[in-house]
């Protein structure tokens, strides 16, 4: 797990951070209000003897004390969607409204796409973009199971997605996924600073194009499930440097503790505004790891 060592200086309670990596993550799910009301779903689970607990910060999120939640009838019928806890954060930060036009630039498998669709009450339009043909199948399948009617799927390279404009764009970028170690042990063996630098190049292009496609006054949310500053703050800093009409808005979710984005890395001072972005660490909320930035285009 040496790739985490370089975060010793930026992660609070580094010992706790290392220790939790080997603890598996509980199963969690989102209630799909496109198909069922929250109270009805909770009644069903109680009737079936499924043990669950609602997230403290999001009433539609559930921790499930069950081995294979995917086999629940409620999942097959699309009443719930198995989704990691922190994966529910970026759509909430994006905060889409019914009737808007939203782009999810890196959409598969569609957990966030379908959450956006549900927040928009199946009205307006979500373009779910996914370049990989193999990854379009699970995206479509999740949309159909969850009863989504306001999503259209495209297959562009996100760096060249041709036209907007959109009210809001989510860039849940391909990343080194260091924050997923508790879900799939072994992730860290593929991580390195070099890999993060390579991914950073792609991520900057994706984020720049997302901002180009956004209406003036519109919102772009950039998220990854990794800790590497090269894929997080340095990406956001680069796009801020190259454009004048952008500002960061504070990312904060009541009930979920974030750490501010870093403003110094390897002895170099970064843009102070990056402290508005949020780092979520596994040992602080007993979750995975995530980074989220909210950019407003003036």
């Amino acid at each position: 797990m040496d790739c985490l060592d370089r975060y010793r200086e930026i992660v609070p309670d580094y010992v706790g951070f290392r220790a939790i990596q080997s603890l598996p993550l509980y199963n969690s799910a989102r209630i799909n209000t496109l198909k069922i009301e929250r109270e009805k779903l909770l009644e069903r689970l109680e009737e079936e003897g499924v043990l669950f607990r609602s997230f403290e910060w999001y009433p539609l999120g559930l921790k499930l004390d069950i081995e294979s939640p995917g086999k629940l009838l409620e999942n097959l019928l699309g009443f719930i969607h198995i989704q990691e806890e922190l994966s529910m954060v970026p759509p909430l930060v994006l905060d889409p409204l019914p009737g808007e036009c939203v782009l999810d630039l890196c959409a598969s498998p569609g957990s966030k796409t379908t959450q956006i669709s549900q927040m928009m009450e199946n009205q307006g339009l979500v373009i779910a973009n996914e370049p990989s043909l193999a990854r379009v199948a699970p995206l479509r399948s999740n949309c159909e199971r969850l009863g989504v009617l306001n999503v259209a799927v495209t297959r562009y390279d996100g760096r060249n997605f041709p036209r907007g404009p959109f009210d809001r764009v989510l860039v849940d970028a391909p990343c080194s996924s260091e924050g997923r170690e508790r879900r799939g042990p072994g992730v860290l063996s593929r991580c390195s600073r070099e890999r993060s630098l390579d991914l950073g190049v792609l991520q900057i292009s994706l984020l720049k194009n997302a901002l180009r496609l956004t209406k003036p006054g519109g919102t772009v949310v950039y998220s990854t499930c990794t800790y590497a500053p090269e894929e997080n703050e340095l990406v956001v800093q680069k796009v801020l440097e190259d454009a004048e009409d952008l500002r960061l808005e504070k990312v904060s979710i009541a009930g979920l503790q974030e750490c501010p984005g870093i403003t110094e890395w390897n002895g170099k001072r970064l843009n102070d505004a990056l402290s508005c972005t949020a780092r979520y660490y596994p040992h602080i909320n007993d979750t995975g790891g995530f980074y989220v930035a909210k950019i407003i285009k003036n």
Binding site: I127, C143, V153
Partner: peptide, 19 residues
């Protein structure tokens, strides 16, 4: 296919709403 009543931007689509 059925999709919510919106003006679809001129893009090349893989799926439009629900089959």
């Amino acid at each position: 296919w059925a999709i919510s009543d919106v003006d679809l931007p001129a893009l090349s689509y893989e799926a439009v709403g629900m089959r």
